[in-house]
């Protein structure tokens, strides 16, 4: 109780000073625009014209801050985003867009807010069914990425990919698989003292041992005393899909992967269900 009083004392003056906090109340427009497919789509078009120049085409930031991950994006209420767009940042680079019609401001709010939601909650465009056929078929994704027990082990499990990633992360994973490496999937080649080669991904390693899944999916638990050399490879085992598949096909794969989510209610299955 004492703690609560302390917090209240702390919060009241802060809220009085900070318009953003004072305005963090629910606006009736939220029910009209936020999470509504057609408004998010309209907001995306407006974003491309008005915002992408500074915040990047997918919200990844540039002259302006990243709108997907980071302090500008996280835990912002729709009214805060709306006010940020409407009023701009006084004294900063962000201009006010208050001269635009209110409906358009709310549509942009809906789109910008959606950028920092897990991919599953964003209506990622594309044909998820076609993406599924590619995933388990000619794109070969399932050779390495398991979904609910179907597939290989050389890449991260994607059973909950839509909940565990932002869209921007999934896009990067598909289009630029070597940009960063997921922990536990460091591509590696070992040479044993006997001269044999084992290629795969390192789950973990130290000066004394290495835990590795080889390209055939077999798990090896090895002391380094049996090894001649460990080479961490520049590129992951993931092929460059951009060379073999059209933009539409890649978008379909993304649409499929973004919809992978367990522990979600079935009510919206008609729109997003793929399992």
């Amino acid at each position: 109780m004492r703690r609560l009083v302390f917090l209240l004392l702390l919060t009241v003056p802060l809220a009085a000073q900070n318009p953003a906090l004072m305005e963090a109340v629910r606006d009736p427009n939220e029910d009209v625009y936020i999470g509504k497919k057609e408004h998010v789509a309209a907001g995306a078009e407006l974003y491309a014209l008005a915002c992408a120049g500074c915040h990047g085409p997918t919200g990844e930031g540039g002259r302006g801050p990243n709108l997907v991950i980071g302090p500008a994006a996280q835990n912002k209420r729709p009214t805060q985003i709306y006010n940020g767009i409407k009023n701009g940042v006084p004294g900063g680079d962000m201009p006010p867009f208050g001269s635009m019609p209110d409906e358009q401001l709310w549509q942009m709010t809906a789109y910008v807010g959606s950028l920092s939601r897990p991919a599953y909650e964003v209506d990622v465009p594309g044909d998820a069914e076609a993406g599924k056929a590619l995933y388990f078929g000619k794109a070969g994704c399932s050779k390495c990425h398991m979904i609910l027990g179907e597939g290989g082990a050389l890449g991260p499990d994607l059973s909950d990919a839509g909940l565990q990633n932002y869209m921007i992360q999934l896009r990067e994973g598909v289009l630029e698989p070597n940009k960063r490496i997921t922990s536990g999937f460091d591509p590696v080649r070992l040479t044993t003292n006997a001269g044999a080669t084992i290629e795969g991904v390192a789950k973990n390693y130290t000066n004394y041992s290495i835990q590795l899944v080889d390209r055939g999916g077999k798990l090896h638990l090895l002391p380094t005393s049996g090894l001649k050399e460990i080479v961490f490879l520049k590129n992951t085992w993931m092929p460059d899909l951009t060379k073999r598949f059209s933009e539409d096909e890649l978008q379909n794969i993304l649409a499929f992967v973004s919809r992978q989510a367990t522990r979600v209610s079935t009510s919206d299955d008609t729109e997003t269900g793929s399992n």
């Binding site: 000066n207 002391p223 005393s225 050399e229 460990i230 961490f232 520049k234």
Partner: peptide, 12 residues
């Protein structure tokens, strides 16, 4: 038992 340092490299 002492473990000799294994040759470990990272491709650039």
């Amino acid at each position: 038992k002492p473990v000799p340092m294994v040759k470990r490299t990272r491709e650039q």
